[in-house]
Design a protein around this nucleic acid. Structure first.
Lengths: 140, 140
DNA sequence: TATTGTTATACTCTATAACTATA
DNA sequence: TATAGTTATAGAGTATAACAATA
């Protein structure tokens, strides 16, 4: 047997799996003009319209400088709309456009098919277990 | 509850966990002049001395062009030695130097402490489960 | 023809510094 | 002083093209 050292490290398997899954998701979303991050931002905004740039930065663990660039892209694609806060003039609230909602529906369908495909080695219970274990590692 | 859509996707948790764990490993290995990839290459070469550049490329899922650059770095640091194959003159076999072995021992200690720290939310059985599930997803 | 190994290069992701405007 | 938001930029990771030497 080979690669015993690397195989003993969870992080090694985590990384191999993550790159495999992510690169497949990148290919999956490409036809829609989305990437994993921009897809994530649209998901957030659909469920919580009116979030600000710093809300998104915090929730997705990004850097504010990068969030600004990403939001610029999404606005240029006509997928988000900015609305000034009425009280705090530093703040802008973000909302999805109708086109974005449509695109996001398609993206979600593709993303679920992608997951079905990538995690086909695991049954439904195992997938739930995997998800729950991962969530506990990164959350708090 | 918020972020239901993203939270339903295993890939989301996979990515958040992977970036968290990887960036911590990067910080952990930095004092030794190693990164996750270079650390992985040294691990492989310790267990299977004499591997070639293309062996490493295949086993770690890299691109040969990038492996060449990485091996150049490792050689410049005095961590690997190249020995020509006696029969096939295209091939070079790679071996760790004594310094590399010493550095790798330290790196492994740090990496294990790092894993202990990052996966502290899970008990020993859960870690084994997580590792096994991940391995099944990326392997074959 | 195919494989090994390399250089050069481009693109994305992630990070920091520096800045503005508002609070 | 601190926060919201932005621009510019640098580094690391990942990808392709093109090539030389050898099989």
């Amino acid at each position: 047997m080979q690669g015993t050292t690397l195989n003993s490290l969870i992080g090694y398997h985590l990384r191999r799996t993550s790159t495999l899954v992510t690169s497949h998701l990148v290919d999956t979303l490409k036809p829609l003009g989305l990437r994993p991050v921009t897809f994530s931002i649209l998901c957030l905004l659909r469920e919580a319209p009116g979030l600000t740039s710093s809300d998104i930065t915090r929730r997705l663990g990004l850097k504010s400088a990068n969030t600004a660039t990403l939001l610029g892209e999404l606005e240029a694609r006509g997928w988000i709309e900015r609305r000034d806060d009425e009280k705090d003039r530093r703040v802008t609230h973000l909302h999805l456009t109708d086109t974005a909602v449509t695109t996001l529906e398609e993206a979600l369908t593709l993303a679920r098919e992608h997951e079905e495909d990538r995690f086909s080695a695991l049954d439904s219970t195992e997938r739930q277990t995997l998800k729950a274990l991962l969530a506990r590692v990164w959350q708090e």
